[in-house]
Simulated scan of single mutants.
Amino acid sequence: MPSINDISIGQTARLEREFTEEDVRVSKELTRDYSPVYDKDEQAWKKHYPKPIVPALLTEGLITQVISSKLPGIPCVLLQKDLVFYSPVHVGEVITAELVIIDINKERNWLTQKVTCYDVDGKEVIKGQVVIYVLDNSL
C-alpha cells in the first residue's frame, strides 16, 4: 500500500460530478436539512436563486471523494477544512473538484491540499484547503 513517502508537492487530482435531484433528496434525508432552497417547487428562494441549490455538504462530498479515491487515495482522516462557497451549485450542473498537494509534514503524517471546485465554464464555485492525516500503513 502506498504511503505519505509516495506523495509529492504539486501532485494534482480531479473528479467531476453532476448533482441530481435524487442526490439532493438523499442528502436532505441523511442530514435532516430540509431548507427550502433545495426544493424546486418552493417559491421562497427564487428571489435569490433562480434554481434549487445543492447542499454544501453534498458538494463537499466530491472533495472528500477525491481525497479517498485519488489523492492521496490511501487511508486518511480529514483534520481541517477551510472552504469558501463563492457561488451556489445548482442541480444538473457538472462540478469539477481539483486538489493539489501544497505541503507535506512527514513528522505528523499530514498533507495540506489546495481545493478548487469549478463549473463547466471554469468559474470557481468553491475554494479553500484541507489538512488530512495519512494513516500509517504499518499498523
Rank of each mutant, 00 (worst) to 15 (best):
D82T: 07
I104A: 03
V66A: 06
L15M: 15
P50L: 10
I74E: 02
I104E: 05
L71T: 09
D103L: 08
I126M: 10
S68A: 15
T59G: 05
H48G: 04
I104Y: 02
E29V: 13
I67G: 02
K47C: 01
I101R: 03
L111E: 07
K114C: 01
K114V: 08
W110F: 15
V100R: 14
N109R: 14
F85M: 09
K123S: 06
L30A: 12
P72E: 05
D82S: 14
A44E: 13
R108L: 15
V37L: 06
S69P: 00
L30S: 01
E107D: 11
V26C: 02
I95H: 12
F85E: 09
E29F: 14
E93S: 09
K47W: 12
D82I: 08
V100D: 01
V115N: 08
L99A: 08
Y118S: 09
I101M: 02
R14F: 07
P72D: 07
G61D: 10
E29S: 10
K28E: 15
L15C: 02
I102K: 13
D82F: 05
E107T: 11
L111N: 05
V125Q: 03
G122T: 04
Y118W: 09
E21H: 12
K28F: 00
Y38L: 04
Q113I: 02
D33V: 08
P36A: 03
V94G: 00
V115Q: 07
E107K: 11
D33C: 07
V37Q: 09
V115H: 10
E21C: 00
V89W: 10
I102W: 01
L111F: 12
P88C: 03
E22M: 10
E98F: 10
Q80W: 07
R14P: 00
S87H: 15
V37W: 07
G122R: 11
R25P: 00
L57E: 07
G92F: 11
D39N: 14
S68R: 08
